[in-house]
Simulated assay, not measured.
Amino acid sequence: MNAGILTMTDARIHYEMLGSGPPLLLVPGGNGDAGVYTAAARTLARHFTVVTYDRRGHSRSPLTGPPGEERVERHAEDAYTLLTAIGAGPARPWSSSPAATPVTWTVPASSPRPFTGPFTSEVIDRPAPAPPLWTHDRTDP
Results as ranks from 00 to 15, higher is better:
72 V>C: 05
18 L>R: 15
89 G>L: 07
103 V>W: 00
129 P>H: 06
94 W>P: 00
127 P>S: 04
76 A>I: 12
36 V>M: 11
120 T>V: 00
43 T>R: 14
81 T>L: 15
5 I>R: 09
23 P>R: 02
114 P>N: 12
63 L>I: 14
28 P>W: 08
107 V>S: 00
12 R>Y: 08
65 G>W: 14
127 P>Q: 08
73 E>K: 08
22 P>M: 14
26 L>D: 07
102 P>E: 00
19 G>Q: 01
116 T>W: 08
46 R>Y: 00
87 G>M: 15
101 T>Q: 03
67 P>L: 03
115 F>L: 01
87 G>C: 09
60 R>D: 05
74 R>N: 14
68 G>I: 10
11 A>C: 12
119 F>G: 06
6 L>E: 08
97 S>P: 04
45 A>F: 12
112 P>S: 10
67 P>M: 05
11 A>R: 14
59 S>C: 06
124 I>M: 06
2 N>H: 13
58 H>E: 02
75 H>E: 15
93 P>D: 12
81 T>P: 11
26 L>N: 09
44 L>G: 11
1 M>E: 03
49 T>D: 06
68 G>P: 02
55 R>K: 13
88 A>T: 10
121 S>L: 01
88 A>Q: 15
23 P>D: 01
57 G>V: 10
111 S>A: 13
32 G>V: 07
23 P>M: 10
60 R>M: 07
140 D>P: 04
113 R>Y: 05
97 S>H: 11
91 A>W: 11
95 S>Q: 08
41 A>C: 00
59 S>M: 07
41 A>M: 00
119 F>Q: 09
2 N>L: 05
124 I>L: 09
10 D>Q: 14
52 T>Y: 01
66 P>A: 10
135 T>N: 03
55 R>T: 07
110 S>Y: 04
6 L>D: 13
18 L>P: 03
12 R>M: 13
126 R>V: 15
27 V>F: 03
59 S>F: 09
131 P>R: 10
15 Y>P: 03
46 R>V: 02
107 V>A: 02
30 G>I: 05
139 T>C: 07
91 A>S: 15
36 V>L: 07
100 A>L: 01
97 S>M: 05
137 D>G: 03
43 T>M: 08
92 R>H: 06
121 S>W: 02
69 E>Y: 07
38 T>Y: 09
81 T>Q: 15
136 H>R: 01
137 D>Q: 08
136 H>D: 03
10 D>N: 15
88 A>V: 09
118 P>I: 14
140 D>E: 12
126 R>M: 13
23 P>N: 04
34 A>S: 10
